[in-house]
Design a protein around this nucleic acid. Structure first.
Lengths: 216, 216
DNA sequence: CCAGTTTTAGAGAGCCTTCTCTAATACGGG
DNA sequence: CCCGTATTAGAGAAGGCTCTCTAAAACTGG
């Protein structure tokens, strides 16, 4: 009932991904995407209302690709194994998807979040909330296996929720792998294999040391 | 013997810093810097040959500001205290200099390193080499205090230099504090105070756990 | 007070980008 | 076979950015 599409949204986003990976968000211009995909500029505007719409789609698609594996790892049955798997996932996914990982170096603000359509802004908020709550609940599960420390310390609702402990878990399984990956990507290199073992060791060390009793 | 300057390089770089901190590298246009400083565009081009020259000056000035304190901390007499001081410095400096810290979120490539003048490229290489070697030598000093592990493992020239151990130190005192700081900055927030204690705890934990004998 | 030098001041050319608009095109259903 | 629709195709207006160029201005040493 209609002419078949030659340049669909996914294809155009692939071009946008390449441009963003090699030249940063600023390199993703509508003209550059069109040229890189071999399409006329009209076709790009046929798929995406404007540049913010394209940038938001690129960010959300990339983030979703990363989150699926991360969430799967975080929801593993055994808390400790799940934490280590999540830490590993960041490194492995970045090694397998270098272009996407380069995009996630930036933040949504760098991709013009301020001018995104409301729809995209909502999706971003939901995706981030989902990931954050998954990390949070894993941190709770990890804490539940430990001996309770001081029950009269704050309004512990469900299991004990020491914000500092949650923060430590978050550092071990999110920030630390992310930092290591980004260091290599920032230098223009790919993520080396030994980054994986480094992350495993460091995450294990951080998950072990729970009590900050050793002040010095 | 000449007309006194009204807009010197430092003032213009201050404007560029504000623009970069709030809008990223793309927001640092010659026109925007001129407007933000209240100067005509000619004055900007009088100080900086072209945009890459200005961007390189901005990056190098910002990096130098961060490096001075970092190098001072790394060169402390007692290795372990020096390592913890270095980790702390990243957080404290970022809290004290939010705009500069936002700039360092990016990499030199985002500030157009490919088109920098050779002079600037050389300065960058030197600054990075200095910082890297300071971390490296601190890692060596830290390792020297520990019991030697397996002397017949690689061409140990001076003190034992296990690349994995150096990497672990680098993660503890550079990557980890950087990651924590950038997480807050990426979200548009400032770095909270509790980030400092989190970094201290995590760095201490990582510096303690040296031997990767606990595989699981 | 003058000559010399640095700096301000801003107009404008050339290029690139975003976005719009019109026309042509290719396919499927009846 | 033909109509309706989704899509391609690309020209072009409007605006921003980089960079150049000319002229004026402001200060200092003699």
């Amino acid at each position: 009932m209609a002419r078949p599409p030659r340049y669909d949204a996914a294809t155009l986003l692939d071009s946008a991904l390449d441009l963003a990976a090699s030249g940063g968000p600023a390199a993703v211009t509508m003209a550059a995407v069109a040229k890189s995909a071999g399409a006329p500029s009209g076709s790009v505007y046929h798929r995406f209302a404007d540049r913010p719409a394209l940038l938001s789609a690129l960010w959300l698609r990339t983030l979703a690709g990363f989150h699926t594996g991360l969430l799967a790892a975080l929801e593993g049955p055994e808390p400790r194994a799940a934490a280590l798997a999540a830490a590993r996932h960041t490194v492995e996914w970045s090694r397998a998807h270098p272009a996407e990982a380069r995009v996630l170096r930036y933040g949504p603000d760098d991709f013009g979040r301020a001018s995104w359509p409301p729809h995209a802004t909502r999706l971003l908020r939901e995706a981030n909330a989902r990931a954050f709550s998954a990390v949070d609940s894993l941190a709770r599960r990890l804490g539940a296996g430990e001996p309770a420390k001081s029950p009269a310390d704050g309004p512990a609702d469900g299991p004990a929720e020491d914000p500092a402990a949650v923060e430590r878990v978050r550092i071990a399984i999110v920030d630390l792998p992310y930092a290591l990956v980004q260091r290599h990507l920032r230098e223009g290199a790919t993520v080396p294999e030994h980054a994986l073992t480094a992350v495993e060791e460091c995450a294990a060390a951080l998950l072990c040391a729970k009590h900050p009793d050793r002040t010095e």
